[in-house]
């Protein structure tokens, strides 16, 4: 029991929570934005993989870290454009199209990586983001090292969560996005072009997914390897449901999730009789449990997964 308390009282755990949460925050916000406009984006897993690869590759070839994040965002947006063309313009099944984007984006990442980076025993690395101590706040006992000594993208993720919450619920643009997700016909009657809103939301959301991936290779780790995204994209999709499509709750959900994840990693070293695979299963099982609890209660955007065609019911 005291071992458990030791884990909970260590600043290492609480610092790790924000680090683990960051890609989930970016990814969940991206998926949330797409879904608020009425389009499910299952391309997320592949877009994160591509963002991780291309952001890393840019930095490996001499770009600075922020340029790396930007490249990942732009490429994420391009995959978003592809998903939008398939699901908005052509109105194809959002499930299958999203999976297609994921399969394409991840295999394309591996192809480009294998082509441009020679095979080596240990994967090549880059200089990743360094943690920045926020002046004043980081000197606070315990809380300081845990929450205010993070890498810059982590602060950016929290900022974007707040901005997205403001935009969605306090601006005309946000109203247009939410209306398109609830009832595109009504939105059109108000002079909003649902097609354009959906394109914009999917591209912007996918850009966030690209950044989510790049965080893995430019901050959490410093190299790229295939399958490194490890289902984080799917976890984000589950977190969107858990958050009931609200950015503030998405932030909380990601932190809660990261807390359990950071906790189980440390628990492994204490409970070494239990096979390590049991602990690794936990994040996925936790996501499924969260879905089962929340799915019925959640307020799903009413037009989610319904293609919109002008003048067609």
């Amino acid at each position: 029991m005291s071992a458990l308390m030791d884990i909970l009282a260590s600043a290492g755990l609480w610092g790790a929570v924000l680090r683990i949460a960051t890609p989930l925050i970016f990814g969940t916000l991206g998926a949330l934005l797409c879904e608020r406009s009425g389009v499910l984006n299952l391309g997320i897993e592949g877009i994160m993989t591509f963002g991780a690869m291309i952001g890393w590759l840019a930095v490996y070839n001499g770009a600075d870290l922020w340029t790396g994040l930007l490249v990942a965002a732009v490429c994420g947006g391009l995959f978003g454009l592809l998903h939008a063309a398939l699901t908005v313009t052509l109105g194809l099944s959002q499930h299958v199209s999203g999976l297609g984007v994921t399969l394409f984006a991840s295999s394309f990442s591996y192809y480009v990586f294998r082509l441009l980076v020679p095979v080596a025993g240990t994967p090549p690395t880059v200089e990743a983001f360094e943690p920045i101590a926020l002046p004043g706040l980081s000197d606070l006992p315990f809380v300081g090292p845990a929450f205010f000594t993070q890498t810059p993208p982590t602060y950016l993720a929290i900022l974007i969560a707040l901005v997205l919450g403001y935009v969605l619920f306090r601006t005309p643009l946000g109203l247009a996005i939410r209306m398109t997700g609830e009832n595109p016909h009504a939105a059109e009657a108000q002079g909003i072009n649902p097609m354009r809103v959906r394109y914009g939301a999917i591209i912007a959301g996918s850009a966030l997914m690209g950044v989510a991936g790049a965080f893995l290779t430019l901050s959490a780790f410093n190299s790229f390897f295939p399958t490194m995204v490890q289902g984080r994209g799917w976890i984000c999709i589950a977190l969107v449901v858990f958050s009931s499509w609200r950015p503030s709750r998405a932030l909380l959900g990601a932190l809660l999730f990261a807390f359990f994840d950071g906790f189980q990693v440390r628990l492994q070293t204490v409970l070494d009789i239990v096979p390590y695979q049991v602990f690794l299963m936990m994040p996925y099982l936790l996501s499924i449990a969260a879905l089962a609890v929340m799915a019925r209660r959640a307020r799903v955007p009413q037009a989610l997964m319904q293609p919109y065609r002008r003048g067609e019911r």
Partner: peptide, 14 residues
């Protein structure tokens, strides 16, 4: 529980 099976089947793969 009305949970979309796409996400749950994907997560169960892992």
């Amino acid at each position: 529980f009305f949970v979309d099976e796409v996400v749950t089947t994907l997560l169960l793969n892992f």
